[in-house]
Design a protein around this nucleic acid. Structure first.
Lengths: 137, 137
DNA sequence: CTATATGCAAATAGTTTGCCTGTTA
DNA sequence: TAACAGGCAAACTATTTGCATATAG
């Protein structure tokens, strides 16, 4: 997991088992967990890990470009380790969040002059195919 | 303010002075206030208004299409009454949020089959022109 | 007149902090 | 061995809830 160490280091963060564990959790199940969910999953194999540490680790991962925050609605912030350009499709029925790659050269974003774009988040809300099918029955 | 009443009614909500006041607050200053900020401003001209009522009213406005929620980062949800297609440009230096209209026919969003899009939020993070200028000095 | 909304206060998330101990580089 | 990070518990902030009272339609 050398990419992990490099990234952490580049961000000015040290390697710790907790950070690794939190990253593993994100990579294992790509379901955009909340910090609380990450905490519960991380705890399964690292029972001493604390709440505060999970928040710390998530911050470190976000700051070193290993994860993103996703804030969809009121409620807990979610996290995902997919660093490619993508949007989040959020099903309002089942609550699932799907990553959808952005088409290359999508001429989408306005570039107001002077504004330096660092990153952007696109969240699309609606109803997923499965839930739409169920609703029809 | 007939548009307001129509909208509320269509959403299945009753007119109340509190809802009107909350909507006024959003319309007066388009600075994407948090619920707490709305509460403080609403209270100035309606001292009896309560915290819970402000949250209620904001929900009613969102559900009847009179306002949108904007969730930018960890922290409080913000609200805006601009219902046109637009993105939010968020300056990480000064914290301001600017509305920027989306170009017509921007072919931006992937349409994964089966997914019924209800609405989407585009948040662009970076540094605004003013802050960039200040940083250079 | 009745369903719905408000006001209040207390409860419940979600997140951060302080302080002391442990660990990485 | 000197920062930096973790653990724990408590503090804070954001949001929700329960219930009695008020009010819009």
């Amino acid at each position: 997991m050398t990419h992990f160490n490099e990234r952490l280091g580049a961000g000015g963060f040290r390697f710790t088992p907790q950070r690794q564990r939190v990253y593993e959790v994100l990579m294992e199940t790509r379901d955009h967990p909340t910090a609380e969910e990450v905490f519960i999953r991380a705890k399964k194999r690292m029972p001493e890990i604390s709440h505060a540490t999970v928040y710390n680790c998530l911050d470190a991962l976000v700051q070193s470009g290993l994860a993103r925050q996703v804030t969809l609605e009121r409620g807990a912030t979610r996290f995902c380790p997919n660093m490619e350009e993508h949007c989040h499709y959020h099903c309002e029925d089942c609550g699932e969040v799907f990553d959808v790659a952005l088409p290359k050269n999508s001429t989408l974003l306005p570039r107001p002059k002077g504004f330096k774009i660092a990153r952007y988040d696109i969240a699309v809300h609606g109803v997923c195919a499965d839930c739409a099918a169920k609703a029809k029955k």
